[in-house]
Design a binder for these strands. Structure first.
Length: 931
RNA sequence: GGGCCUAUAGCUCAGUUGGUUAGAGCGCACCCCUGAUAAGGGUGAGGUCGAUAGUUCGACUCUAUCUAGGCCCA
């Protein structure tokens, strides 16, 4: 039985199953399963197969712990790029990777297994490390997928995979072939109790009591040439140190070039100290007043030579700007074998890296007096010796922060050791790197300056680590003569073994099994060798990632198009990748490098556990959904540091709701609209519908450019503004009358729907890279209507039609909307005066200048709909001039139409439908079947 | 201490080659609507552009210093 006809129910209200409530937290996982079930990633690739490629090569996060907001930001940005390029038709596979070797995992395993792991078989230990890394690869993989990032998650690259490990060895072999690998000395932290090198991260600082001594280094060269006032007098330079045991390795004294140094006469002897520390020096040493004979800049003394206080050796005066006036004498005892800064300074001045201390911390026979003595125990006798021989000025004790071993908690030493290096200035490596940097596009542009400075100034790359979890440096030592066997062909042979068995082979097999048959020492022809046990720096591992990834994937061209990481990677991955790829390919591995900033808290402070201001991506996802996190990434200027806070997230949730509601309104008003059947020609569209398409054109244009420049926040802000202002506040508000009250299939309603459908179909694709879940949800609501690809992510990136961009129309509507604003103000005033409520209760009179009058007259019939009032009267403004139109507001005449809510004097005039107006009467008559 | 970077309304962002009263959206306040309804609409109040000193007829836009913050080194 049909229901009786109801005027009220005869309006075409929006109708859709698309929920206002997104329920992202529950629905996103379902969407992920849907994508998985249709094999979406593969389908996207297949769609673009054979077309130009765009390769964004993933930088591998470390396989340890959960992802944080920085890694989330990074992966989402990459996903924006890849999804956009895919929609643009590029073949754009995304192969995620993980960095699996290295110290953090080793340390973690040592803690978990107990320090007994030192005694554990290395293969077993490495097995534990591998399992640990696998576990976190699995965890992070799920977290990244949860963010809606598309990629080859089933087959990522892992730096610990056998083939990857073999590539690492091969690239090392390339450097060997180039002649850039050498073995040299470098000081490292060394625990004399554990007899092992320690990494920075394994050093703990705690208070320790040390001697504090002032020592005289008598002048050997003629200081009188630099300081005429001291001619003929005995001169000494005074140093201060808390490690007397390093004095036997002293080779130099460092001064600051810009500081003033005083020549002080004390008891007939001239002492040189920094003037800024003179007072504290004299006081500490109880030397009384002392007369300052002269003062000179440190720079003036460069190259002067002193004699070592108790060894028959020179100590040269050098310059270094790390010298401070905080403590001591401003004349810094320099032992290149026992300190990082000393080492660097020594390199600059060509000093040897002297280190007369062995693994156990005992002096070697290079220190005859205390040969065999543990260095810490040698402090006393050395001080005593200097006291006897007159070079000691003062000795006391001092409590200060000193490095200790994290394992045994004993004080450690800084000691030079044999390490492996890649020479930067061999084979033009540095120069070629600088060339390639120039050839690469850096975003932002200052990135080029930053990495150029680093490459130009960096020392040789120390690639060796005294560690277990990594890829060994594949060189051998002749068991007979000790000669190093470093040969590219040998490395290649070993790499072949790694390919089959992984780098574990190094530890599983004897050197005879690893070497090509018949290998003999080039020096003595002996055939027995020992293996090197150092492993490669993990930056070497990740540096070869593109080589390792593209090696087995012929679809990946060289070089890749883009590397996209945080700004810390100028020092890290961008840098090591550049050097590594110069070693194996002689070009940079990337064409473009894009960097993002750091994620900070609401006050712009770095997040840390100690500050307690950390926000976890997991928390954002479980409270708001991944889409909100993605929207955050899309909303901020990520090339600078970005902030996140509860307030920011709550704003984003609101913005998301607005965008979602806009999409929902579009869907709701398209119920029953089939574009292939119902769409109107552009030329027949209502003017405001054409205006909406013109605005859409501008939006698409602007956003397309923004995508090409990776300006994602421009897209977010433009779309948001388009939704709130152009659509919600203007277009939709005006359109509701036409959509709701015209007959469902009337030309005027079809005109509106044509525009709505076009807007939705374009908007949803425009946003797909940024909010893939929501756009897909909309897409699936759209699909039954017409013939669309299975997923929005299989659709093409939207391009506007040229005809939409009607400049004249846009200019005209700028003017209309400006007048509309005046009308709104007048209506608001009337509302405040309680003269109207809803704007349809009003009839307005616009008093306009002749120009405006003519303009408004030309569209007189449309104005009441544009202004959303029941009647518009136009009047010429009294007086001349072209000032702003003035608007008067009256109560509209007649009664409110029950159906369209406009006021009309004719309501009541139609006997069959007495409650409706002249516009609605014919419509309801048709609907009620009364015509 | 060094290299590079940042600092515009409560929030997120725009501000072309220095030039009239510094823009937007959101939020906020007040109001309207109840046929996008855990929606929608309107009006309005908020910055002197981190600070200081310069250059200039004129600076948010140029220079210097400082302050706060970030990454990477030392």
């Amino acid at each position: 039985m049909d229901k009786p006809f109801s005027v009220k129910d005869s309006v075409n209200l929006p109708r859709t199953d698309f929920k206002m409530q997104a329920n992202l937290v529950q629905n996103e996982p379902k969407m992920l399963r849907f994508w998985e079930s249709i094999g979406l990633y593969e389908k996207i690739l297949r769609k673009n197969e054979g077309r130009p490629a765009y390769i964004l090569h993933d930088g591998p996060p470390y396989a340890n712990g959960n992802i944080h907001l920085g890694t989330a930001l990074n992966k989402v940005l990459k996903d924006f790029v890849v999804k956009y390029k895919s929609m643009k038709g590029f073949f754009s596979p995304y192969i995620p990777g993980w960095d699996c070797h290295g110290l953090p995992i080793e340390k973690r395993m040592e803690t978990e297994l107990g320090f007994g792991s030192k005694q554990m078989d290395i293969l077993e230990f490495r097995q534990h490390c591998r399992r640990y890394a696998e576990k976190y690869v699995g965890i992070q993989r799920e977290q990244f997928k949860r963010l809606g990032v598309f990629g080859d998650w089933a087959d990522p690259y892992l730096t610990m995979s056998y083939s990857y490990e073999s590539t690492i060895a091969r690239v090392f072999g390339d450097f060997v072939r180039m002649g850039n690998v050498y073995r040299g000395a470098k000081p490292v932290f060394w625990c004399i109790s554990c007899q092992t090198a320690l990494a920075e991260a394994e050093v703990e600082y705690s208070d320790h009591e040390s001697p504090s001594v002032y020592v005289k280094f008598p002048a050997k060269s003629d200081f009188g040439r630099a300081i005429p006032e001291v001619v003929g007098k005995p001169v000494s330079v005074v140093i201060w140190t808390t490690t007397p045991w390093t004095l036997p390795a002293n080779l130099a004294i460092a001064l600051h070039p810009d500081y003033d140094y005083a020549a002080v006469e004390v008891d007939g002897e001239i002492l040189i100290v920094a003037e800024g520390l003179l007072a504290s020096f004299l006081r500490d040493c109880g030397l009384g007043q002392g007369a300052v004979l002269a003062r000179v800049k440190g720079a003036v003394l460069e190259g002067q030579v002193c004699r070592h206080p108790f060894i028959d050796r020179d100590s040269v005066l050098v310059l270094a700007d790390y010298v401070t006036l905080e403590q001591g004498t401003g004349c810094v005892h320099t032992a290149p074998g026992h300190g990082q800064e000393d080492y660097v300074t020594g390199q600059r001045y060509g000093l040897p890296v002297l280190c007369p201390v062995d693994n156990e911390g005992r002096f070697t026979d290079e220190v005859p007096n205390w040969n065999g003595m543990v260095v810490f125990e040698a402090n006393e006798p050395i001080v005593e010796h200097m006291r006897r021989t007159g070079s000691l000025i003062q000795a006391a004790a001092i409590s200060h922060s000193y490095p200790h071993c994290w394992r045994c908690h004993k004080p450690i030493v800084f000691r030079s050791t044999k390490q492996w290096f890649i020479a930067l200035d061999q084979s033009n490596l540095r120069a070629r790197a600088l060339e390639e940097i120039k050839r690469t596009k850096w975003y932002p542009e200052w990135g080029e300056i930053r990495i150029t400075n680093m490459v130009a100034n960096r020392p040789d790359w120390c690639i060796s680590r005294q560690r277990s979890w990594g890829v060994p440096i594949t060189v051998f030592y002749c068991r007979q003569c000790g000669q190093v066997l470093m040969d590219a062909a040998v490395v290649e042979h070993v790499a072949g073994i790694f390919e089959r068995e992984g780098a574990d082979a190094w530890y599983r097999h004897s050197s005879a099994e690893l070497l090509p048959p018949g290998t003999a020492c080039p020096n003595c022809r002996h055939a027995e060798f020992d293996k090197e046990f150092d492993i490669l720096d993990v930056w070497f591992d990740s540096g070869v990632s593109y080589e390792a990834t593209s090696r087995n994937r012929p679809e990946l061209p060289w070089p890749s198009d883009m590397y996209l990481e945080g700004g810390d990677q100028y020092r890290g991955w961008f840098h090591s990748s550049l050097l590594a790829s110069l070693g194996c390919r002689n070009t940079a591995p990337y064409r473009e490098v894009l960097t993002h900033g750091w994620v900070l808290d609401k006050d712009g402070l770095a997040m840390s556990k100690s500050r307690g201001n950390v926000i976890e991506p997991e928390a954002v996802i479980s409270q708001s959904g991944a889409e909100i996190l993605r929207l955050w990434v899309g909303s901020v200027e990520y090339r600078e540091d970005v902030r996140i806070s509860d307030e920011i997230l709550s704003r984003l949730r609101e913005a998301y709701r607005k965008i979602r509601n806009t999409l929902r309104f579009l869907l709701g008003n398209l119920a029953g609209f089939d574009p292939t059947r119902d769409a109107c020609d552009y030329a027949s569209l209502h003017e405001i519908d054409r205006w909406a398409l013109a605005r859409l054109h501008q939006l698409l244009e602007r956003c397309g450019q923004a995508y090409d420049r990776y300006d994602f926040h421009i897209i977010y802000h433009s779309v948001y503004q388009f939704c709130t202002v152009d659509l919600s506040a203007v277009y939709f508000d005006v359109l509701k009358d036409r959509l709701y009250t015209s007959a469902a299939a009337s030309p005027e309603r079809r005109s509106a729907q044509t525009a709505l459908w076009t807007i939705l179909h374009h908007l949803v694709r425009l946003l797909a890279p940024l909010i893939p879940f929501t756009t897909e949800e909309v897409w699936q609501h759209l699909r039954p209507v017409t013939d669309l690809p299975e997923s929005v992510h299989l659709a093409d990136f939207p391009t506007p039609q040229a005809v939409w961009l009607d400049a004249g129309l846009l200019a005209k509507w700028d003017r209309v909307l400006a007048i509309r604003e005046l009308v709104s103000k007048a209506l608001e005033t009337a509302r405040q005066e309680n003269r109207i409520g809803n704007s349809l209760e009003a009839r307005i009179t616009v008093f306009a200048s002749p120009g405006d009058f003519a303009f408004l007259e030309s569209m007189a019939d449309d104005l009441r709909y544009i202004f959303i009032v029941s009647a518009v009267v136009l009047a010429e403004k009294p007086g001349v001039g072209d000032g702003q139109p003035e608007v008067a507001v009256d109560k509209a005449a007649g009664a409110k139409c029950e159906r369209c809510w406009n006021y009309s004097a004719q309501v009541g005039a139609f006997t069959d439908f007495p409650t409706v107006c002249e516009r609605c009467a014919p419509v309801v008559r048709t609907l009620a079947g009364k015509v």
